[in-house]
Design a protein around this nucleic acid. Sequence first.
DNA 1: CCGTATCCCCGGGGATACTG
DNA 2: CAGTATCCCCGGGGATACGG
Lengths: 136, 136
Amino acid sequence: MSCQPIKTEKHKKEMMAVQDSMDVLSGKWKITIISSICYYNKRRFSDILNDVSGISNKMLSKELKELEINKLIKRTVLNTQPITVQYELTEHGKSLQTIINNLTDWGIKHRKEIIGNNSEISDHPESQNILAESNI
Amino acid sequence: MSCQPIKTEKHKKEMMAVQDSMDVLSGKWKITIISSICYYNKRRFSDILNDVSGISNKMLSKELKELEINKLIKRTVLNTQPITVQYELTEHGKSLQTIINNLTDWGIKHRKEIIGNNSEISDHPESQNILAESNI
DNA sequence: CCGTATCCCCGGGGATACTG
DNA sequence: CAGTATCCCCGGGGATACGG
């Protein structure tokens, strides 16, 4: 176990890196917004507003701005009447695609997992409510 | 473009899956907590408290409970004096390892990216402050 | 050591209305 | 359509103290 301190150093760096990611990606709607833009390639403000269920225009505007500052998305004003605005991932933003895909796959898997486990615990339909606040 | 509706259906499902993931993983500290447990394999309450800089015992307790309800982590009380509690990933929780690793890699990449872009914009050291609230 | 309970404050964030 | 401004409320979450 003499290698423990070295392992710990490594883990600390890994933890810091995760924190760095979360500084940019946490926030109630960021990941979902990015997913919308990612899957549709180019997406307008009002479209994202629909994609991300529950978000307000105020929050969408705010989070888009933050993502833009962090160079993850690019904002383009189109010469339409009335004006529309298009959002797309930057090259750097596109490096998140893997993560988005993983999260998508995991979401599907998780849904199955939870439903499966619940029916193991009890057959009562009411027990479905146990799944922790999955519909805030 | 007659395939557009089909594509849209697919994207909607993908978006829903991401939302499902985020229902469980969002929350100010969840991902970082999971990372700590993931990298150290088994981790005690007080250790996680140290790993996740800034978190309070109240929040750690709360988020751990939620993760446990969602079957991502397993809680074990050890017969030590005084009592200690150990957390580890469940099998289902381990399926997040890929995502954690990706987030770690991306964090490192992102840090380089932002510093790089900033020095392109300006040589002034003060411009470092532009990086959006990366140290809340 | 591992939490829970209590107090309390601030700001996240919704609803609505307005401008370019 | 895209976004900003204003108002306002509720609960997230910190600090502290205590119990098992």
